[in-house]
Design a protein around this nucleic acid. Structure first.
Lengths: 216, 216
DNA sequence: TCGTCGTGTAATGTATACAAAATACAGTGG
DNA sequence: CCACTGTATTTTGTATACATTACACGACGA
């Protein structure tokens, strides 16, 4: 086993990301370094390092002399991100070996059945959604593309706190994923890309419906 | 005028990026913080902050306990990045207003003529290449897409030091850009996307030819 | 001779201290 | 009463000091 003794700044970064994704911080809120550092039980140094790393990743904003602030949620951002992501994942499918996709398609079908299972925590659900897409992309040979996709997805993760346990929502996700998987299993890449685009467009749409208050 | 008193870490970040792009640092090289900090005339704090920011941007690597190192150049990376970039820029064209593209196309034609001018420093040339593409994307309404594109381009910038003043190279670039511009001016988006893909594929190909030693 | 262990040195990671900026606020003048 | 200015306080940005980890090197034993 590879033991990675993670630095404090890595742990702090994870904790901040976690708070952003569980909605325990107000988007757009100003960050007080001393306060947050005390809260996390570390000095300002690793905290600032974590904040700067997140800024580089586009997850946090800073203004010189004025410190850091969480990025506000914006309907525009979400709407803009969807076509980017579906295009990139579509490219990933195009670059993948067709036989690999057929094989993976079958596995993805089994996974999408899990989505229809009894009610689960939405955190778990998002995690499954993640691993589903990751599994779909696992046969794509273009590593750089996967990195870019991961970055874009990270940006969208900021919105996941808006999702609640909505039965209908869960059902639709299961349907959509099943549709994609079926296309892949049949080797119909074009159909899968189309279904993928629908999946992302629908996903953002549902988020927007839930999140009226988070106007742009 | 908006005066932005840039923090030290921002200046340091710029300087490091500059060194990476002018080839004055060895790719893959380990970074000695105290040495580099002394060289830049700052303390380790803003230097480390700049390094961490660059790490978040994917421009340098770090291993906990082992510090920072410049990323090695890799032929694979370059090859993988080309389709990502051309796909994204193609998407940008798809999302742009067709009339805007026609107008911009004419302006881009004029700009591509400049590429054919008398020999210029390759730094200047890259700068022009940049502003050419940026101008092409200026009518794309999807701001997030532009951010993602900028990130990918930033990664490719690490390779620009490999380019030398090669007449043939310059000529081909001028041709390719002119081809794209012509398509846009005629409102032929599909043709432009095709030419774009050729441009990026060709660009990376030329880099690879020049840079045999930088094997993966 | 090779491998292992232990020590010393140099590097990174974190905490604290200091400096400089931005904000809040009270006082003054109109 | 409002606007402005100067000062106090808070907060960020940078430097330095300390702790801890990784690395190099040499001694010891097999």
């Amino acid at each position: 086993m590879v033991i990675k003794r993670s630095a404090l700044r890595a742990q702090v970064r994870e904790e901040i990301l976690h708070r952003m994704r569980t909605g325990s911080v107000k988007p757009g809120e100003q960050i007080n370094e001393v306060q947050l550092a005390a809260e996390l039980g570390v000095s300002r140094t690793p905290l600032r390092e974590a904040l700067i790393a997140l800024e580089g990743e586009g997850q946090i904003a800073s203004e010189s002399g004025r410190g850091f602030r969480f990025l506000p949620l914006s309907a525009t951002e979400l709407v803009e991100l969807a076509p980017v992501l579906s295009t990139l994942e579509g490219l990933a499918l195009d670059l993948s070996d067709i036989d690999d996709l057929r094989r993976i398609g079958a596995e993805l079908q089994a996974m999408s059945d899990d989505f229809a299972e009894e009610t689960v925590q939405h955190a778990i659900l998002n995690q499954r959604d993640d691993s589903w897409h990751r599994h779909m992309l696992s046969v794509c040979p273009n590593q750089r593309l996967l990195v870019v996709i991961e970055n874009v997805r990270a940006t969208m993760h900021r919105y996941e706190a808006l999702l609640v346990n909505d039965e209908q929502l869960i059902a639709r996700r299961a349907e959509e994923h099943a549709a994609i998987a079926t296309c892949l299993a049949e080797g119909d890449v074009e159909g899968a890309k189309e279904a993928l685009a629908k999946n992302w467009a629908g996903g953002t749409q549902r988020l927007l419906e839930v999140a009226e208050p988070a106007a742009d």
